[in-house]
Design a protein around this nucleic acid. Sequence first.
DNA 1: TCTGGGGTCCTAGGACCC
DNA 2: TCTGGGGTCCTAGGACCC
Length: 440
Amino acid sequence: MLYVIQSNVIPLCQNLEIMYALVDCNSFFCSVEKVFHSGLQGKPVCVLSSNDGCIVSLTPEAKRVGLHRGNPIFKVMDIVNRYGVRVFSSNMELYAAMSRRIVNILRQSVKHVENYSIDESFCFLDGYEKHYNLEEFMREIARKIDTWTGIPVSVGVAPSKTLAKIGSKFAKQYLGYRNVCVIDTEEKRRKALSLFDLADVWGIGRRTFERLTYLGVHTPLEFADKSESWVRRNFHKPGIQTWMELNGIPCIDTSEVVRNQSLCTSRSFGEMVSDLPSLKASVATFASSCSNKLRTQHAGAKSVMVFISSNRFREDLPQYSNAGTVTFPIATSDTLEITYAALRILQDIYHPGIKYKKSGVIVSDIEGLSCVQGDLFDPVPNRPERAKMMQSIDILNQRYGIKTVKLAVEGEEEQVWKVKRAYQSPNYLTDINEILTIQI
DNA sequence: TCTGGGGTCCTAGGACCC
DNA sequence: TCTGGGGTCCTAGGACCC
């Protein structure tokens, strides 16, 4: 076997003009809830996944009383009660609105901002060091975000994204950094890598961690110090990229893709369901949601997949899961066309006598609608007219609330398969009827 | 009783072709 | 009897992320 060896390991400090800042919101979902609920400062708070299943976000105070991300809430209710932990259902609409405000503040201060996830953004600071002290510059931005939105952030500044992420973790962990940790010298890099937990490095998941441990590597520094040929012998592209990034050579491109490659809507049900009509209602609702997402992106999908599955945690019940796909002759975002196809798939894969816990719809092969190829044998008559109808429905739903107009097969509200959200906050930022009221 | 949802990228391997 | 060596395309599944 022939390995191509690239000898392009450049000493860290030659590369300083490319600096990345990662701005990471601390316990983001919890912090948003704390903005709208006074009296929670210093208190343990956690936010749950859909169906009020697991903990997905928690404050340091909640960690200190023994809670962890991923805990099923029903297993830790004794801790919640004993320490008076405040629990919220997740409200993604509220968190997304807050996220947009934070990204806007960043874009006011930095020319090139890459919004990586709902609570993290990368800032490209190339050239900024000529005019600013990067540490003070980012500290001022962090202060601005905290003052204007109430959300505390931690910032890592370093010559690669992976190192910037490590910096932000240090900034979060140690108050002495005052929200910003800069890794800009070889000495700081080696110190940080020797102290950081290998399993917490961005790009090193459970399997890679196990493999590295097996190979006798126990800290990020030991990994970074391995020779290039050793890394190429033992890992594929992702591992090599992480190794380079740890050595200060940026090579991970997370630049925003204009359009998704696939879109998915799926839920676990509040209660298990066996009957076809309930499953149909869920699949129709999810298909309709996917069509909606496509239209907001001005895109269409060429294929739709439906999956259903039983409750994998109930070993006492018969297990079954299946999926099916339908391809369209031309890319579509038409709710009727996508839902009809989805229901046909469901009909094919449905197996009676099973208690189902989850269903979902995934649309893929997504294209921009402006460049969609026409088809001589298009099964949808009057496609332009149908598009206008969809547009009208979208306008009505936007003006009078989602689901004002929907397909009959989607069924009534409050069905057994609907998710449980017992502790949800109002949409303070996006619904005029739920705006915060202050009594003086 | 109760255990998340939504993505991306990479690789291996099969089918098929010349 | 002997039984090649390239390609491409597609899909499933693994691994990882927040």
